[in-house]
Simulated assay, not measured.
Amino acid sequence: MPVPFFRPDLSEDAVNTVADVLRSGWLTSGPQCAAFEAEFASYVGGETHAVTVNSATAGLHLALEAVGVGPGDEVIVPTLTFTATAEVAAYLGARVVLVDMDPNTLGADLDKVTAALSPRTKAVMFVHFGGYPVDLTDLAETCAARGIPLIEDAAHAIPSRIGPKHIGSFASDVAVFSFYANKTMTTGEGGMVVTRDTAVAARIRTMRTHGIDRDSFARFTTRNDQWRYDVIEAGFKYNMTDFAAALGRHQLAHVDAMRLGRTRAAGWYDAALQGLPLDLPPRPSSEDTHSWHIYPVRLHGGLEARRQVTELFAARQIGYSVHYTPLHKLTYWSGAAILAHEGYPAADAYFEGCLTLPLFPTMSRAEVDEVVGALKEALAC
């Protein structure tokens, strides 16, 4: 039985929602984006502002720009993340300082983040890896005392919560969510920036569309002087389309139900993988909510075990991925980033055998069993 790495949960109602926008004639940022922003801010809570963008990468770029990151500054980034978390600092001429991971959360080691702070640090980026929610209250207080903005890369983290508080509603200065095709909710491509800082939100809104002081929907729907606008900064082209926002609104309404589907499948994996030579994904306390964006395991047999498994998965048409090759192992970042003298032993050990198994909201028990059966065969268990 073929098993895809991911299958989006898209109903005919979702398709019709997007089709209605296409029929409306207004395709770029407009009323759907405005409604999506309001609904997302309400969902996250904490008196936040929400700003739609065309990717989480764009959102991270705008976030760093809005808090003042520029040439010569340093930005602390975990080495176990996708390159986008770091590359946005390079866009602004800043240096990336890589820190090791915490095996208990797969996020950055908070002690190593604190130790890496220096007078040159202009921002700290933290990734909630796989949707595992990490309480950043103490780190936020440390950063605030030094005047250093804390940015949450929350690409995996809707609807992750610490107790009743959603990621992005407390602690950090800015949080950025992803709606890429295989994320916990999707608009195909797209993202959302969330902040409690009104000035930061205003700056991001301006910079996402060429530095223009009026958004296109307002300019084209105002009766008087609709053509007038000013450019107050050299901005970017990072706005979301209205049909993407319409899909996002539909997905947001079902995001908790989709999480339950992924959580159910993760539970089946947990039970079936007991006793195998691998480490299961870490999980937070029962009071917190894991989004279960992905299900990563670490094979005890390292690179050879992963080769055996992936070859059989490919033969059986079972999807898989690796999250991630640590940045310090990649050609560009090995030369461009500021690396730790002691190296990255935790990330190196994790990467040796990490493998991400298929996980999606509509995954069936039979599909989980197919993956587990192939995994056991490859590992000769």
Score class of each variant (00 low, 15 high):
V96Y: 10
L136P: 03
G59P: 01
A108Q: 10
H61N: 13
A140Y: 00
Y91Q: 13
T114E: 15
A115R: 13
H156Q: 11
V97Y: 01
P78M: 11
V96M: 15
E74D: 13
V88E: 01
A157P: 00
V97T: 07
V77E: 00
T121R: 05
L80N: 06
Y132L: 13
T52D: 03
P133D: 05
V69D: 01
K112F: 07
L60H: 01
L136Y: 08
V99L: 05
E47K: 15
N54H: 10
A116T: 11
V134Q: 04
G68E: 10
V134P: 00
T85M: 05
G68I: 12
A63T: 06
P119H: 13
A140P: 02
R95G: 12
K112M: 14
G72E: 13
A56Q: 07
E47P: 00
A58H: 12
A115N: 12
T79F: 01
A86W: 03
D135K: 07
L150M: 15
T83Y: 10
F129T: 09
P159S: 05
H49I: 05
H49K: 13
P103Q: 14
G70H: 04
L92R: 05
V53E: 04
V67P: 00
A58L: 04
E87D: 14
H61Y: 08
T121V: 13
V75N: 02
A86Y: 02
D135S: 07
